[in-house]
């Protein structure tokens, strides 16, 4: 087992044209929302409440993507031991946790007028909440460990186990209770609603890519500063 040695030289990624990408993403998101809201007629049962679909479903989609990223980058880190994998996993987890939080809050805003309650112990809600707590644990673990290599190894292990647990949590909670309406997928939907959803999937994906990238740049910079501080403390160059 090769122990991942943190390289003294660290390549801090350049911001490059990512800020431009950020502005483009913002503009595209505004367009996507405008398009979705103006092209979709009020739903027969839900009325304009249906519009929350265009932020709720894409947010939950980003949640799945980011957690898959945490799993992949954690495995890569355990295998190759490169700092960048660790920090990419951490950045994905932060963005992911944010989007799970958003998904939950948007779901509650939709649930109150639809079901009459802010929260119900339905399978999908409950498993999303449990997932949120798993990744809060992951981020808390990172916050409590100062030594970078240990932080990387441990959080990678926690990330992998957490991701393995996702389908099991989902199954167990589903057996426990089910009330949520069938998942909205583009196939189950009228075309007037579908295009708005698809375009928002794209907008949210761009946003997640942008956020993870900028978070990763910041994390790499912080990591380089840590290393420089260590080197200075040891009296090196």
């Amino acid at each position: 087992m090769t122990s991942p040695a943190s390289s003294p030289e660290i390549q801090v990624p350049k911001a490059g044209s990512w800020p431009v990408f950020g502005w483009f993403t913002l503009a595209f998101m505004v367009f996507a929302q405008w398009y979705a809201i103006t092209t979709s007629p009020a739903d027969r049962d839900m009325g304009d409440l249906q519009k929350i679909l265009y932020v709720h479903v894409p947010a939950s989609w980003i949640m799945s993507i980011t957690f898959a990223l945490v799993f992949v980058y954690s495995l890569l880190y355990l295998w190759k031991g490169k700092d960048s994998y660790d920090l990419l996993a951490a950045s994905s987890a932060e963005v992911g946790a944010t989007f799970v939080g958003l998904t939950l809050v948007q779901g509650m805003i939709w649930g109150k007028p639809t079901w009459g309650v802010w929260w119900t112990w339905d399978a999908r809600l409950t498993s999303t909440l449990v997932l949120f707590l798993v990744f809060v644990g992951y981020l808390a673990l990172r916050a409590f460990i100062d030594e970078p290599q240990r932080r990387g190894q441990w959080s990678a292990a926690v990330g992998v186990l957490g991701a393995i647990n996702v389908p099991i949590v989902w199954m167990s909670v589903r057996w426990w209770r089910t009330l949520h309406q069938m998942q909205s997928t583009p196939q189950t939907m009228e075309p007037v609603y579908r295009n708005g959803l698809l375009i928002n999937f794209l907008a949210f994906t761009l946003l997640a890519v942008y956020l993870i990238r900028r978070r990763y740049e910041a994390a790499m910079t912080a990591r380089a500063a840590e290393l420089a501080l260590q080197a200075a403390a040891l009296g090196g160059g």
Binding site: V130, L133, V134, V136, G137, Y138, A140, L141, V158, L161, G162, N165, I168, V169, M171, S172, V173
Partner: peptide, 9 residues
């Protein structure tokens, strides 16, 4: 904090 959510199933 780490253990309890993992033990839900």
């Amino acid at each position: 904090l780490l253990l309890f959510p993992m033990l839900v199933p």
